[in-house]
Every structure is written in structure tokens, then in C-alpha cells.
């Protein structure tokens, strides 16, 4: 575990869409490394490419060019069925509009990811109940989405995201459909998951108030990362880790920013893998150690 590489490690990601005659470049050489247990907010205006980045990181989409190591495994060119398997095991999604199945109970919604792996129905129920308890909805199993408040629905969605004990939770504007008080509660839930269970959380938002909860902010514009900053309030351990990574990333970010206008495949000045790996370890131990008991299956 000491030599574990970063959970998310993307290099020179390029994603182009063809809209009729015009080729749109949604991502233009994005490189980013995120260590286990990190808490990252991706910020940017609409059309900046942040959603495309999230989709690729969430394995819902594949990049046109570039590499993506998820937990050390190259996933940029995997087949749809392998991507589905990885989504199931390693990634949890939280959406702006909750995306719960209507007319389906909270428990069944949380069980959904478990349906796609072989697991006994007893264990499935138990894990779904545990997940609901972790988000404070132990008494709402039988409720359907239309019987729950917006905040409760998003909690169900978070429970669904973490029921498979993922490495990463990707939250796309998780508070966008909630009032500020409920949104704040939701951020508390996510923060607790990050701090107590060490789950890597990456959220997309354009609200400063929401981004404030993260330890790291990545700003995206025109398909490039234009800034990658570390925030105050991070725990000392992650701060140290973050700082170590930050140093390195700042260079990459600048390189990407400068290189962007020249087109795709812009290479950051000679990435140094050895240094990268050396930087990663401090990030993991405290968070991982704390979370291990509650993670009987890491999905590996």
C-alpha cells in the first residue's frame, strides 16, 4: 500500500466531439493526478469541459486521446463491458437531479449497484441498509423518492454511490437542486465520508461556498486546467500530501495552460513518475487506516 500510485492519474486527455462539420474540442490536453482520500472540487463555467472531464473520470465516456490510469490500471481504451464493471466496483456517482429510480423504495435504489455483481440477496439488503444508515436515513427504507425531501433523496443517492465501497465518489453539482441549508448538510455528509472513510471525493460545482469544503480546487476553462490550488482547512496529513502533489501539479497546470492554444497532445515538461510515487504515500495512510474496518470489500 505504501507504493500505491495515485487513484486517478490522467495525462494529456483530449476529447473531441463532432457536431456536423465542426469538430469541438471539449478537453484539450488535461493532465491531473489525485491521490487516494483526496477531496477535490472541479470548477468552471458551463462549456468549460468540466462535465466532459467528470464523464471520462467516471468511465461514462472514453477520451479521444491520452491515458487514464485508475488505480494503476489503464482504462482509456477499455471495452464498454469492462468500463461498466469498473464503474460498478470503483466509482460512485452523485448527480445534481439525484437520478433515483421513481416508484422504487430507497432501499431498492441503494441496492441497485449490487444487482450487477454476484452477491447474495441477504448481503445485498444488509449492505444497502448499512449504507442508508451511514447517510442518516436508517428509518426511510420503505420510502419512495416522491415521499422524500430533496435532501433525503440526495442522501439516498449518496448511499447508492457508496454501497459498493468505491474508491471514488464523483458528485456533479450535488447541491444544485437543493436550498443552501440542505446543500450545506449534504456537503457535511460528503465531507464525513471523505474524512472518516477516506473515500476520494471529486465534485463539480460553480459555487464557491460548496467548493470551500474541498481541500483542493481545480479550475477548468476551454478544456484546460488553468489553476490547481490547495485550500486551507485541510487536515495536516492530507495537507502535507496535497502540498507535495501541488508542487508538481502546479508545473503541469501551467504547462497545460500555456500549451493549450497550440493544440492537442501538449506535453507537460517531462513528468517524473518516481517523484510522483514518492509524493503519493503520505496522502493515504491516515485516511485508509481509519476507513479500513468499514470497508470489508474494496472491490478489487
Amino acid at each position: 500500500m505504501a507504493a500505491e500510485p495515485a487513484v486517478i492519474d490522467v495525462r494529456h486527455l483530449v476529447k473531441t466531439y463532432r457536431m456536423g462539420e465542426v469538430e469541438v474540442r471539449a478537453l484539450n490536453g488535461v493532465s491531473l493526478t489525485i491521490a487516494a482520500g483526496d477531496y477535490v472540487a472541479v470548477m468552471g463555467s458551463s462549456g468549460s469541459g468540466k462535465t466532459t472531464l467528470m464523464n471520462i473520470l467516471g468511465l461514462l465516456d472514453v477520451p479521444t486521446q491520452g491515458s487514464y490510469l485508475l488505480d494503476g490500471l489503464e482504462v482509456a481504451r477499455l471495452a464498454p463491458r469492462e468500463l461498466a464493471e469498473l464503474r460498478n466496483r470503483k466509482i460512485g456517482f452523485v448527480f445534481q437531479n439525484f437520478n433515483l429510480l421513481p416508484r422504487t423504495t430507497a432501499l431498492e435504489n441503494v441496492e441497485l449497484p449490487l444487482l450487477y455483481r454476484s452477491i447474495s440477496s441477504r448481503a445485498r439488503h444488509q449492505r444497502a441498509r448499512d449504507a442508508l444508515a451511514r447517510v442518516g436515513l436508517a428509518d426511510r427504507h420503505r420510502h419512495r423518492p416522491n415521499q422524500l425531501s430533496g435532501g433525503q433523496q440526495q442522501r439516498v443517492a449518496i448511499a447508492r454511490a457508496l454501497v459498493n465501497e468505491p474508491r471514488v465518489i464523483l458528485a456533479d453539482e450535488p447541491t444544485g437542486n437543493l436550498d443552501s441549508v440542505t446543500g450545506e448538510e449534504m456537503m457535511q455528509v460528503l465531507t464525513t465520508l471523505n474524512e472518516r472513510d477516506g473515500i476520494l471525493i471529486m465534485l463539480v460545482t460553480h459555487e464557491q461556498d460548496i467548493a470551500r469544503h474541498a481541500r483542493r480546487r481545480v479550475h477548468v476553462r476551454d478544456g484546460c486546467i488553468i489553476a490547481d490550488e490547495l485550500l486551507d482547512g485541510a487536515s495536516p496529513a492530507s495537507l502535507a500530501a496535497g502540498a507535495a502533489q501541488q508542487e508538481q501539479r502546479a508545473g503541469e497546470g501551467r504547462a497545460g495552460g500555456e500549451g493549450a492554444p497550440q493544440g492537442a497532445g501538449v506535453v507537460s515538461p517531462e513528468p517524473v513518475p518516481a517523484e510522483r510515487q514518492a509524493a503519493a504515500p503520505p496522502a493515504t495512510p491516515p485516511a485508509e487506516a481509519a476507513s479500513s474496518p468499514s470497508m470489508p470489500e474494496m472491490g478489487t
Binding site: 464498454p80 461498466a84 464493471e85 464503474r87 437520478n99 441497485l112 449497484p113 450487477y116
Partner: peptide
């Protein structure tokens, strides 16, 4: 879409 996102294969 939801099912695919949480890991349903084609």
C-alpha cells in the same frame, strides 16, 4: 442511464 452508471453492462 442510471443503471449503466452504477455498473449495468449492455
Amino acid at each position: 442511464g442510471i443503471r449503466m452508471a452504477v455498473g449495468a453492462k449492455r
